[in-house]
Design a protein around this nucleic acid. Structure first.
Lengths: 139, 139
DNA sequence: TCCATTATACTCGCATACTAGTATATGGCA
DNA sequence: TGCCATATACTAGTATGCGAGTATAATGGA
């Protein structure tokens, strides 16, 4: 195993480093990086179904159920009955959740800038493009 | 949250796609991607301590304990007393573990080639270099 | 030599993330 | 209209990954 040449190893460790970095940024909000990302998506528009949020966040419904459980317990979101489909739930941000979502977006933006501060704009866009290509390889 | 421009989101999703890809490659060996990587490290030299393996794999000791538990239960490794330090354990590959480790290295190599097949050599080395820089930003 | 510090591997608790399976509700088709 | 396939959100079980805490052992300095 030549770990330096292994894309799986490098990707995994870069991701771990990124998550640690973001975790420090959102620690003062008392949420995890993933919770901050989900709140960030809801900041663009809540009142979505769990299924729609799952498509946005590219998360499994089982994973999302757990994340929503914790956000609801913390008082950041509420699950409501969907007006036209009794299978679905509609996710609403609470007033506190709305504030926290705005702060999350700011923290994530700041973390993005700082985490990539040492990179040139060309490196930044090149990295995002390459990662995007890798994502699309998924079965 | 502009997910397309967020390094944390893209890194996380690229990593998930990579893990799914590798999982398919090693499924016939009845091990997980992480277990294959750990066996790959042991293929270069077993009889290492858990602490040394943790440094190589960049894994927390709590995480590694669980992975070693599963590899030992499956009969791929054994924990032995360290000859000179009674705090340490020495990890030995079993005969079956040795075979599996060799197969793991082959599967990971093949997965690396296939996962990056669409990339030019310049893109490949560029990606690895950029990911390496991100890893080093870790606190 | 004795003791405080450090090192080692472990346990526990929590948070993702997946697969598989379930109960309920919807919707299209015969 | 009745029924079957699909969609939705959930639970259960498994596997990483981390922080915090623990018991034991080694080590270095007074």
């Amino acid at each position: 195993m030549d770990s330096q040449a292994c894309i799986f190893f490098n990707l995994s460790k870069a991701n771990q480093a990124a998550l640690r970095f973001l975790a420090q940024k959102v620690a003062e909000l008392h949420i995890t990086p993933v919770q901050a990302m989900v709140l960030g998506f809801l900041h663009r528009g809540d009142r979505v179904t769990s299924s729609a949020l799952g498509k946005m966040t590219e998360l499994d419904s089982a994973t999302l159920t757990g994340i929503l459980d914790r956000l609801e317990t913390a008082g950041h979101i509420r699950r409501h009955m969907h007006p036209h489909d009794r299978r679905s739930i509609e996710i609403h941000l609470t007033p506190e959740g709305k504030e926290l979502a705005a702060l999350s977006v700011g923290a994530i933006d700041e973390a993005n800038r700082e985490f990539l501060a040492a990179f040139t704009p060309a490196d930044r866009s090149g990295l995002l493009e390459l990662l995007g290509k890798l994502r699309d390889k998924s079965p």
